[in-house]
Amino acid sequence: MLSIKNLAVKLEDEDKQILKGVDLEIEAGNVHAIMGPNGSGKSTLSYVLSGKGGYEVTDGSAELEGVDLLDMEPEERAAAGLFLAFQYPVEIPGVGNMTFLRTAVNAQRKARGEEEMSAAEFLKVVRTRAKELKIDADMLKRPVNMGFSGGEKKRNEILQMAMLEPKMCILDETDSGLDVDAMKLVAEGVNALRSEGRGFLVITHYQRLLDHIKPDVVHIMADGRIIKTGGPELALEVENNGYADILAEVA
Protein backbone atom coordinates (compact mmCIF):
# COMPACT_ATOMS: atom_id res chain seq x y z
CA MET A 1 0.00 0.00 0.00
CA LEU A 2 2.51 2.61 1.20
CA SER A 3 6.10 2.10 0.22
CA ILE A 4 8.78 4.46 1.50
CA LYS A 5 12.38 3.95 0.44
CA ASN A 6 15.41 5.71 1.87
CA LEU A 7 13.46 8.95 2.26
CA ALA A 8 15.72 11.87 3.12
CA VAL A 9 14.30 15.33 3.79
CA LYS A 10 15.76 18.68 4.74
CA LEU A 11 14.17 22.03 5.49
CA GLU A 12 13.78 24.12 2.36
CA ASP A 13 15.09 27.36 3.85
CA GLU A 14 17.62 25.95 6.24
CA ASP A 15 20.52 23.60 5.99
CA LYS A 16 18.90 21.16 8.37
CA GLN A 17 18.46 17.49 7.52
CA ILE A 18 15.45 16.05 9.35
CA LEU A 19 14.79 12.67 7.79
CA LYS A 20 17.93 10.72 7.08
CA GLY A 21 16.82 7.74 5.06
CA VAL A 22 13.49 6.27 6.18
CA ASP A 23 12.36 2.86 4.93
CA LEU A 24 8.82 1.71 5.55
CA GLU A 25 6.47 -0.78 3.88
CA ILE A 26 2.86 -0.85 4.97
CA GLU A 27 0.67 -3.55 3.51
CA ALA A 28 -3.05 -3.11 2.97
CA GLY A 29 -5.05 -4.25 5.99
CA ASN A 30 -2.21 -3.59 8.42
CA VAL A 31 -1.69 -1.12 11.21
CA HIS A 32 1.83 0.16 11.75
CA ALA A 33 2.78 2.30 14.70
CA ILE A 34 5.70 4.72 14.91
CA MET A 35 6.99 5.75 18.32
CA GLY A 36 9.96 7.88 19.13
CA PRO A 37 11.26 10.80 21.15
CA ASN A 38 10.11 14.35 20.44
CA GLY A 39 11.89 15.91 17.53
CA SER A 40 12.81 12.64 15.88
CA GLY A 41 10.97 13.54 12.66
CA LYS A 42 7.63 11.71 12.96
CA SER A 43 5.46 14.72 12.09
CA THR A 44 7.86 15.72 9.34
CA LEU A 45 7.41 12.31 7.77
CA SER A 46 3.62 12.68 7.84
CA TYR A 47 3.82 16.21 6.39
CA VAL A 48 6.18 15.24 3.59
CA LEU A 49 3.96 12.33 2.64
CA SER A 50 0.90 14.58 2.48
CA GLY A 51 2.65 17.36 0.59
CA LYS A 52 3.18 20.25 2.98
CA GLY A 53 5.50 22.97 1.70
CA GLY A 54 8.75 24.01 3.34
CA TYR A 55 10.53 20.68 2.98
CA GLU A 56 12.92 19.41 0.36
CA VAL A 57 13.23 15.73 -0.47
CA THR A 58 16.93 15.11 -1.03
CA ASP A 59 16.77 11.38 -1.62
CA GLY A 60 14.50 8.37 -1.76
CA SER A 61 10.90 7.79 -2.78
CA ALA A 62 7.38 7.33 -1.46
CA GLU A 63 4.67 5.50 -3.37
CA LEU A 64 1.02 4.82 -2.69
CA GLU A 65 -0.13 1.69 -4.52
CA GLY A 66 2.78 2.07 -6.90
CA VAL A 67 2.11 5.72 -7.69
CA ASP A 68 4.76 8.32 -6.87
CA LEU A 69 3.33 10.50 -4.08
CA LEU A 70 6.08 13.07 -3.94
CA ASP A 71 5.30 14.38 -7.42
CA MET A 72 1.69 15.19 -6.63
CA GLU A 73 -0.09 18.24 -5.22
CA PRO A 74 -1.53 17.73 -1.72
CA GLU A 75 -5.09 17.54 -3.08
CA GLU A 76 -4.04 14.90 -5.61
CA ARG A 77 -2.53 12.81 -2.85
CA ALA A 78 -5.80 13.10 -0.94
CA ALA A 79 -7.79 12.05 -3.98
CA ALA A 80 -5.40 9.12 -4.42
CA GLY A 81 -6.45 7.98 -0.95
CA LEU A 82 -3.97 9.45 1.51
CA PHE A 83 -5.22 11.02 4.72
CA LEU A 84 -3.40 12.73 7.56
CA ALA A 85 -5.05 13.31 10.92
CA PHE A 86 -3.09 16.36 12.06
CA GLN A 87 -1.23 16.56 15.34
CA TYR A 88 -2.41 20.17 15.50
CA PRO A 89 -5.68 20.53 13.54
CA VAL A 90 -5.96 23.99 11.99
CA GLU A 91 -8.66 26.50 12.99
CA ILE A 92 -10.32 28.19 10.03
CA PRO A 93 -12.50 31.15 11.00
CA GLY A 94 -15.36 31.87 8.62
CA VAL A 95 -15.52 28.40 7.02
CA GLY A 96 -18.32 26.25 8.44
CA ASN A 97 -17.38 22.71 9.41
CA MET A 98 -20.22 21.29 7.30
CA THR A 99 -19.28 23.33 4.25
CA PHE A 100 -15.70 22.19 4.71
CA LEU A 101 -16.61 18.50 4.96
CA ARG A 102 -18.93 18.61 2.01
CA THR A 103 -16.48 20.53 -0.16
CA ALA A 104 -13.77 18.02 0.68
CA VAL A 105 -15.90 14.93 0.02
CA ASN A 106 -17.14 16.25 -3.30
CA ALA A 107 -13.77 17.59 -4.40
CA GLN A 108 -12.26 14.12 -3.97
CA ARG A 109 -15.15 12.47 -5.73
CA LYS A 110 -14.84 14.89 -8.60
CA ALA A 111 -11.09 14.33 -8.84
CA ARG A 112 -11.72 10.58 -9.07
CA GLY A 113 -14.37 11.06 -11.72
CA GLU A 114 -17.15 9.97 -9.37
CA GLU A 115 -20.56 11.50 -8.90
CA GLU A 116 -20.89 14.20 -6.20
CA MET A 117 -22.79 13.32 -3.04
CA SER A 118 -26.23 14.93 -2.88
CA ALA A 119 -26.93 17.35 -0.04
CA ALA A 120 -29.46 14.97 1.50
CA GLU A 121 -27.22 11.92 1.34
CA PHE A 122 -24.29 13.88 2.70
CA LEU A 123 -26.35 15.14 5.62
CA LYS A 124 -27.49 11.64 6.46
CA VAL A 125 -24.01 10.16 6.40
CA VAL A 126 -22.39 13.01 8.32
CA ARG A 127 -25.03 12.85 11.05
CA THR A 128 -24.55 9.13 11.56
CA ARG A 129 -20.77 9.36 11.64
CA ALA A 130 -20.82 12.41 13.90
CA LYS A 131 -23.11 10.66 16.34
CA GLU A 132 -20.75 7.70 16.59
CA LEU A 133 -17.99 10.09 17.54
CA LYS A 134 -20.25 12.08 19.90
CA ILE A 135 -19.85 15.20 17.80
CA ASP A 136 -22.94 17.33 18.28
CA ALA A 137 -24.82 19.43 15.74
CA ASP A 138 -23.35 22.62 17.16
CA MET A 139 -19.80 21.46 16.39
CA LEU A 140 -20.83 20.75 12.83
CA LYS A 141 -22.23 24.22 12.42
CA ARG A 142 -19.30 26.09 13.90
CA PRO A 143 -16.34 27.24 11.81
CA VAL A 144 -13.73 24.52 11.34
CA ASN A 145 -12.12 23.70 14.70
CA MET A 146 -12.99 27.13 16.12
CA GLY A 147 -13.71 26.98 19.82
CA PHE A 148 -13.17 23.21 19.83
CA SER A 149 -11.38 21.66 22.80
CA GLY A 150 -8.26 19.59 22.10
CA GLY A 151 -10.30 16.40 22.24
CA GLU A 152 -13.03 17.79 20.00
CA LYS A 153 -10.46 18.74 17.39
CA LYS A 154 -9.09 15.20 17.35
CA ARG A 155 -12.56 13.70 17.07
CA ASN A 156 -13.23 16.08 14.21
CA GLU A 157 -10.16 14.69 12.45
CA ILE A 158 -11.54 11.18 12.77
CA LEU A 159 -14.90 12.39 11.47
CA GLN A 160 -13.18 13.73 8.37
CA MET A 161 -11.37 10.45 7.96
CA ALA A 162 -14.63 8.53 8.23
CA MET A 163 -16.29 10.78 5.66
CA LEU A 164 -13.42 10.64 3.18
CA GLU A 165 -12.81 6.88 3.51
CA PRO A 166 -9.14 7.04 2.53
CA LYS A 167 -6.99 4.04 1.67
CA MET A 168 -4.01 5.04 3.72
CA CYS A 169 -4.56 6.80 7.03
CA ILE A 170 -1.79 8.53 8.93
CA LEU A 171 -2.64 9.55 12.48
CA ASP A 172 -0.19 11.96 14.06
CA GLU A 173 -0.47 11.86 17.86
CA THR A 174 -4.22 11.70 17.66
CA ASP A 175 -4.21 10.48 21.27
CA SER A 176 -2.35 13.43 22.77
CA GLY A 177 -4.62 15.67 24.80
CA LEU A 178 -7.39 13.08 25.00
CA ASP A 179 -8.90 11.74 28.18
CA VAL A 180 -9.65 8.04 28.47
CA ASP A 181 -13.22 8.26 27.19
CA ALA A 182 -12.30 10.42 24.22
CA MET A 183 -9.46 8.07 23.38
CA LYS A 184 -11.86 5.14 23.35
CA LEU A 185 -14.16 7.01 20.97
CA VAL A 186 -11.28 7.80 18.66
CA ALA A 187 -10.01 4.21 18.78
CA GLU A 188 -13.47 2.89 18.01
CA GLY A 189 -13.66 5.29 15.09
CA VAL A 190 -10.37 4.01 13.76
CA ASN A 191 -11.20 0.35 14.37
CA ALA A 192 -14.49 0.76 12.53
CA LEU A 193 -12.50 1.78 9.48
CA ARG A 194 -10.02 -1.06 9.66
CA SER A 195 -10.43 -3.25 6.63
CA GLU A 196 -8.59 -5.47 4.18
CA GLY A 197 -7.98 -2.70 1.73
CA ARG A 198 -6.87 -0.01 4.14
CA GLY A 199 -3.52 0.74 5.74
CA PHE A 200 -2.82 2.70 8.92
CA LEU A 201 0.23 4.51 10.23
CA VAL A 202 -0.30 5.51 13.83
CA ILE A 203 2.19 7.93 15.33
CA THR A 204 2.04 7.97 19.10
CA HIS A 205 4.01 8.40 22.29
CA TYR A 206 1.98 6.05 24.36
CA GLN A 207 1.15 2.40 24.61
CA ARG A 208 -2.33 3.53 25.78
CA LEU A 209 -3.71 4.12 22.29
CA LEU A 210 -2.18 0.89 21.05
CA ASP A 211 -4.14 -1.01 23.69
CA HIS A 212 -7.21 0.01 21.74
CA ILE A 213 -5.84 0.06 18.22
CA LYS A 214 -3.78 -3.12 18.03
CA PRO A 215 -0.81 -2.59 15.73
CA ASP A 216 0.65 -5.31 13.55
CA VAL A 217 4.07 -3.70 13.43
CA VAL A 218 5.80 -1.16 15.69
CA HIS A 219 8.70 1.06 14.61
CA ILE A 220 10.93 3.23 16.72
CA MET A 221 12.12 6.44 15.10
CA ALA A 222 15.03 8.50 16.35
CA ASP A 223 16.98 11.31 14.76
CA GLY A 224 15.34 10.95 11.37
CA ARG A 225 15.70 7.19 11.05
CA ILE A 226 13.76 4.09 11.92
CA ILE A 227 16.11 2.42 14.33
CA LYS A 228 14.12 -0.61 15.37
CA THR A 229 11.12 -2.56 14.13
CA GLY A 230 9.19 -5.24 15.95
CA GLY A 231 5.79 -6.52 17.00
CA PRO A 232 3.33 -5.02 19.52
CA GLU A 233 5.68 -6.04 22.35
CA LEU A 234 8.06 -3.27 21.26
CA ALA A 235 5.50 -0.69 22.32
CA LEU A 236 5.27 -2.31 25.75
CA GLU A 237 9.02 -2.21 26.09
CA VAL A 238 8.98 1.54 25.39
CA GLU A 239 6.14 2.03 27.84
CA ASN A 240 8.09 0.30 30.60
CA ASN A 241 11.66 1.39 29.95
CA GLY A 242 11.47 4.49 27.79
CA TYR A 243 13.65 4.99 24.73
CA ALA A 244 17.02 5.01 26.52
CA ASP A 245 17.65 1.28 26.28
CA ILE A 246 16.71 1.07 22.62
CA LEU A 247 18.78 4.11 21.75
CA ALA A 248 21.77 2.68 23.60
CA GLU A 249 21.32 -0.67 21.95
CA VAL A 250 21.46 0.84 18.47
CA ALA A 251 24.32 3.20 19.21
Binding site: G51, E73, A78, A79, V90
Partner: peptide, 19 residues
Amino acid sequence: AMFYLRSRGVSEGEATDLL
Protein backbone atom coordinates in the same frame (compact mmCIF):
# COMPACT_ATOMS: atom_id res chain seq x y z
CA ALA B 1 -5.36 26.74 6.55
CA MET B 2 -4.52 26.37 2.88
CA PHE B 3 -2.56 23.16 3.43
CA TYR B 4 -5.22 21.78 5.75
CA LEU B 5 -7.90 22.25 3.08
CA ARG B 6 -5.74 20.87 0.29
CA SER B 7 -4.78 17.85 2.38
CA ARG B 8 -8.50 17.06 2.42
CA GLY B 9 -8.65 17.09 -1.35
CA VAL B 10 -9.83 20.65 -1.94
CA SER B 11 -8.05 22.17 -4.94
CA GLU B 12 -5.84 25.20 -4.48
CA GLY B 13 -8.30 27.40 -6.38
CA GLU B 14 -11.33 26.25 -4.43
CA ALA B 15 -9.45 26.53 -1.15
CA THR B 16 -8.45 30.10 -2.02
CA ASP B 17 -12.08 30.96 -2.73
CA LEU B 18 -13.29 29.39 0.51
CA LEU B 19 -10.70 31.24 2.57
